[in-house]
Design a protein around this nucleic acid. Structure first.
Lengths: 216, 216, 216, 216
DNA sequence: AATGAATGAGATTTCATTCAT
DNA sequence: CATGAATGAAATCTCATTCAT
């Protein structure tokens, strides 16, 4: 059902070939797809970059399309790990929860403008119309869990009496939207990294607005 | 300096060819590029769709790349017109400014999920890395004016004592971010249109959060 | 019968259009064909260079092929004029006929490495297989008359008791062959001009060999 | 440095692909380029003639241009082999050296009007302006060695007291020029083969003139 | 008579994919 | 299992040539 293959979730059982070749291919694919997009990244170039032959790629992944999906799945998983780490780090019990929320905002912004996230976003947006399941896959693997975790934290903050939130899931989406509100411009649509100061200020401004709306 | 050619701004002076063929080509290009993206949309297909021959396209636009840019420029201009109309419609003087702001939010959401906007966004995000000037061009033609106009309106609302906004430009970005916060999920990343009700509710929720943060 | 059209021989009666346009086209054609050859010289480029529109070219010459032939015809005629002038200048009656013959050799070499001659040769050799009549046309317009005139002069020198030649036509060919013997290398196959000194020395060496063979 | 690739000099080490396909491609290329020239010979036609697919050609040679160069290199090498064989066959020690020199003249003429030589000449002259290095390459591979070998032979004949030659290199060029003096006309600029008798007579006439100039 | 505009045909080149070894 | 070699299909772009004005 999920587009992202099981092999990503359980990389121990290798479907095909030596795992190191598989790794090399996926790394090369992530790089090439990230830089050039699905169409412009040629299987030849990926094979060259990975140091394997083209048929090896095909024996492992069957199709350029499937290789692409697996590559995206990996990137999404990696990004998700980073984001979840940032959210898990939010301590809602301390009195300094506001500071912690600001720190979380900065982490979200940092993740958002990471090379991994930017290229992932580019690839998905570019190809999602051709393969709408990508949307589902990514939501299940990255956005969904992220929002859930964040919503849970916000609910806790509400329970603790710090915030006044009725729909935590909605609030989570709004928090993310607010922290990223300035990033489109600062990163020139994902073309370049924003200066560290600018990113921090943008995150702070987003969290501030969020607090203005929801703090008790 | 601007990537978007002058012909878009002043469509009266036809650069080349009979204007109707040029129109047909641009329409076909907008459709094909919108559906398939730059790479997968072939010039052959565009020519077929436009009912002209391939060389006609090349004699008008010289390059697939240039045709793409002109097509994007047109879409951006069209989208900009719609958005500006929505913003200009916001009456900040009446006592019912809250109602008006909610209506504006709905308009923004409607524009955002219009086919034109969605496909424009797809195309830009997909190709901006290859041609970073696209980012500048679009900001100058669409996002920039839109944000300026919206910021001005918000400043007026602040002047009128309704809102409490220090940085209107930032607030404008946040308002847009908030109204769109749920749209990514509702449109499945721009893959489908949201139900009218859902869109309205999303817009309302965004404006409500905005008001919670900034209403005096 | 002749490939080269009458219009070249009698440029007064213009077949089509104003003669100045015709001139401009032929000049542009000579230049483009000379630089790029028949295939690579596009009619577009010739029209641009001539400052006329493409249909004008077609209304004057009907076909790229015919334009090419007329252009070659003109070049051949021009080259022939130069060569005939050089040969006519040979005074066989004076006692200094050896000096005159050396001067003639130098003239032949000079003509041979003129831009006109080189490009003419390139074009003919390149296209003669596709259109063998070119060979006939050029022989009739340039090589033939040249050889005849030169043979006549050599016959006169024989009559005057200076040379001992049985077959003047053959001797004429040999004289030309000898003066050009070194030119292939000196001009790098017509790619560049030889230094004036080298050209003169080559001509002298050729005439010397000719005299060694045929002087009484 | 040399345009002609090493693969021609050392055809044992195959650069790419199975050697037989490479051979078939080069044979087809030699034929098509020889008949039609660089521009008019399409890669499609060469692939068809060779019985391979177009991408195979590109995987072997990378570019039409490179295929052309390799093809020319082979032709030049083949022609050089023939010419060197003819020259090596000249026995300068016997009393019948005059007969041998006439035989050599006939061989030179025969080589000159061979299909290989004619088409090689056509191709080089046609393309040398676009790629002047062709001139160097051919001189190094064919004309140069030929002239050297011939000059050496002529020097030997001078040493043996048969000829009186100061500059053997120059004399070699002149001998070739003289034997070919009539061939331009006899072959109609390389369009057709001369009758055997005519070719023999032309060779004889050229050698006779040479002897008249240089025999002691 | 001259032109802007249009086109059918064909050029080179690249790509994802599959055999045979 | 991995690969070198091969290919069908399709891409962008150019050209000589012709209408309609």
């Amino acid at each position: 059902m999920s587009v992202v293959p099981t092999a990503v979730a359980t990389p121990d059982e290798h479907v095909h070939g030596r795992p190191d070749k598989r790794r090399a291919i996926l790394d090369a694919a992530a790089q090439m797809f990230g830089e050039l997009g699905f169409e412009r990244a040629s299987v030849d170039a990926i094979a060259l970059q990975a140091g394997v032959s083209k048929p090896t790629i095909y024996s492992h992944f069957g199709t350029k399309e499937r290789l692409f999906r697996e590559s995206l799945g990996e990137s999404a998983a990696r990004l998700n790990t980073d984001l979840m780490a940032a959210i898990d780090g939010l301590d809602v019990t301390t009195r300094t929860w506001r500071v912690a929320l600001h720190a979380l905002g900065e982490s979200l912004v940092a993740c958002h403008q990471s090379e991994c996230s930017q290229s992932l976003q580019r690839q998905i947006v570019a190809e999602v119309k051709r393969d709408p399941e990508l949307s589902t896959a990514i939501r299940e693997r990255a956005s969904g869990p992220l929002l859930d975790a964040l919503a849970t934290k916000l609910a806790h903050l509400t329970d603790a009496g710090h915030l006044r939130i009725k729909d935590p899931e909605l609030a989570a989406k709004q928090l993310i939207a607010l922290t990223n509100a300035e990033m489109v411009e600062l990163t020139a649509m994902g073309t370049r990294r924003a200066a560290a100061d600018d990113a921090r200020r943008a995150a702070r401004a987003g969290v501030d607005a969020f607090l203005a709306a929801y703090a008790r």
